[in-house]
């Protein structure tokens, strides 16, 4: 299949989905499932009303603090776990526990610990993305070609320099992948956490859920989806910019 074939099929799939949705929406009615023809106008109205984007920007700002912390701590920690057995044995159980624990289940205790403000949302976002960032870095670090470590040793590179100049760059593709995974989970957790305390974008979604029409609710979801997809693609783009060698890494042998 060529690129244009794939694109054609992609578009066909989306159109079919929209048609199904339109038919379903006409049958179910606006207060159960607003049809896309209604959502489009509602979406434009909300875009200009300002609430949606203002709450979104505010929430994303807080999310990026939590996500940034998860990356800043998780990436070096995952790398150390992958290279040093002692560190791995010490923290692996904890990281695994963080990954499997549902952030929603932690929300009540975090509310007790941090209140319902900034710290709470940062904490929820942190625990929900930290594990993915860390474990992806960990698997990357374990898989580093020992031959490349030998080169560093052959040039009598010290452990700190080897870490900085060989292990971290070799890990780079894994760090980007981990960040992309983590970001998806961070976005989900942010909305979920805000629904608990009725603030920000999640709060907006929750409150709109009580309305008669489902059109605004669906509009909020569409925006959220765009943000997630956009951020994910953006990280991929940043990865390719910072590491022009990454895409063709396989052909380098």
């Amino acid at each position: 299949m060529t690129k244009s074939h794939i694109l054609f099929l992609n578009v066909t799939g989306i159109v079919m989905f929209l048609l199904l949705w339109e038919v379903g929406g006409r049958i179910a009615g606006e207060n159960l499932l607003a049809a896309p023809s209604i959502v489009v106008f509602e979406y434009i109205r909300l875009l200009f009303a300002g609430d949606m984007l203002r709450e979104l920007v505010g929430s994303l700002r807080q999310m990026f603090v939590g996500f940034g912390l998860a990356c800043a701590i998780g990436m070096p920690m995952g790398a150390l776990m992958g290279r040093i057995r002692l560190v791995d044995a010490l923290v692996h159980p904890w990281v695994s526990m963080v990954v499997v624990t549902s952030a929603a289940a932690l929300a009540p205790i975090f509310i007790l610990m941090f209140g319902t403000g900034f710290e709470f949302r940062v904490a929820i976002v942190f625990v929900s993305s930290f594990g993915y960032v860390t474990l992806t870095a960990y698997h990357g670090a374990r898989g580093i070609d020992p031959k490349i470590i030998d080169v560093a040793r052959s040039y009598s590179t010290g452990p700190v320099e080897t870490y900085r100049k060989v292990i971290l760059p070799a890990l780079f593709p894994y760090l980007i992948t981990g960040a992309r995974l983590g970001l998806v989970h961070a976005t989900r957790a942010m909305v979920m956490a805000e629904m608990f305390v009725l603030v920000g974008y999640g709060g907006l979604i929750f409150q709109t859920g009580q309305d008669l029409s489902t059109a605004p609710l669906i509009s909020y979801l569409v925006t959220l989806m765009f943000v997630s997809v956009g951020a994910n693609m953006g990280l991929g783009w940043i990865g390719r910019q910072l590491a022009p060698w990454y895409d063709s890494k396989m052909s380098a042998g």
Binding site: K147, I148, R153, S154, Y155, S156, P169, A170, F172, G253
Partner: peptide
């Protein structure tokens, strides 16, 4: 490593980055 020794590797093993 070092100490006046310079090694050339069979599979080149350049750093791809």
């Amino acid at each position: 490593g070092g100490e006046g020794r310079g090694m050339v590797f069979q599979s080149f093993d350049l750093f791809p980055w």
